[in-house]
């Protein structure tokens, strides 16, 4: 076996729109398929993609509850960054993705897990957005900026999406 060069890629997922999330997961899954270690660091609006599609019974302040209602609940409820068209945009894009055999965000997340991509949720922005661990999908790590920076030090590509 010829020597293959395993390198690391880190991706900061700050945005929560469907198209940007899609780009992040296509790059992440592509890199993992090419033998790279990949770490995705989810922060602020990016955390919403990791929410489970059901209300968790957690104690929240009224403001946290309001945030929870206003933000998309998981991968199937994301808006698009352009042409959202009051919610019609994601359906139109979903239709076009299906026609061109592009996997939806939900299955991209599943593929990322299968490939051993490390997904880290930023605990600081979870606090700010009022998002609790009980509301997020399983298999995540919880950490802060130092962990991300430590990972980025080892990487040769770092993206902020």
């Amino acid at each position: 076996m010829a020597e293959t060069t395993t390198t690391k890629k880190t991706i900061v997922v700050f945005s929560g729109e469907m198209d940007k999330i899609l780009a992040a997961f296509v790059i992440a899954n592509g890199a993992a398929a090419m033998g790279d270690d990949v770490t995705m660091f989810f922060t602020f609006w990016g955390l919403n993609v990791l929410r489970v599609d059901a209300s968790a019974h957690v104690a929240k302040t009224p403001l946290e509850r309001a945030f929870g209602w206003m933000m998309p609940r998981g991968a199937d409820h994301l808006r698009t960054s352009h042409f959202n068209l009051a919610g019609a945009g994601p359906h139109l894009m979903g239709h076009m993705m299906k026609r061109h055999h592009v996997d939806p965000v939900r299955s991209m997340i599943e593929t990322a897990r299968e490939q051993g991509i490390k997904m880290i949720a930023c605990t600081m922005s979870m606090d700010v957005m009022g998002i609790h661990r009980e509301e997020l999908i399983d298999g995540l790590e919880y950490a802060g900026v130092a962990t991300y920076l430590g990972e980025a030090d080892e990487a040769n590509v770092n993206l902020f999406i």
Binding site: M1, V26, N29, G30, A33, M34, G35, H100, H101, V102, D103, T111, Q115
Partner: peptide, 21 residues
Amino acid sequence: RGTSCPGPILAAKKGIPAVPA
């Protein structure tokens, strides 16, 4: 066939262990 980026390279990654050196 019928998969889109990055489907084909994912498929290649999955299939390559079955191929002898």
